[in-house]
Amino acid sequence: MNLQMFLLLAAALFAVGLFGALSQQAVVMVMMGLELMINALVVAGAAFWYFLTPQAPDGQVFVLVVLAAMTVEMAMGFAVTTLLFRAKDADMTDMAAELRG
């Protein structure tokens, strides 16, 4: 195992998540894409820690912060989705286009 292998895995997960976030119509499926992209960050962060500076704890702390960010993203995402659905029966991204410039 080396750093490149883990970074390749992270790149693949990030690309799959990006595809989902860009292509899905349902707001909640867009969130699944974002979760996959953050998943890639977990892999990359842990790999950088282990393969470059295993002595310093910074990499591990970074992964903890990323995990917290993932939780926050899911909670706020579902709250906004619920609000959108209550306010205007919208559960698809194309139905919530008020902010289009």
């Binding site: 970074l7 790149a11 690309a15 799959v16 990006l18 119509q25």
Partner: peptide, 23 residues
């Protein structure tokens, strides 16, 4: 469940190639 599938596919494959090359 998809929209703009081709564009999203192109962008994500591009992102993968870029990231993999960087790695």
């Amino acid at each position: 469940m998809l929209h703009n599938k081709r564009g999203a596919l192109a962008i994500s494959i591009g992102a993968f190639v870029l990231l993999a090359a960087g790695a």
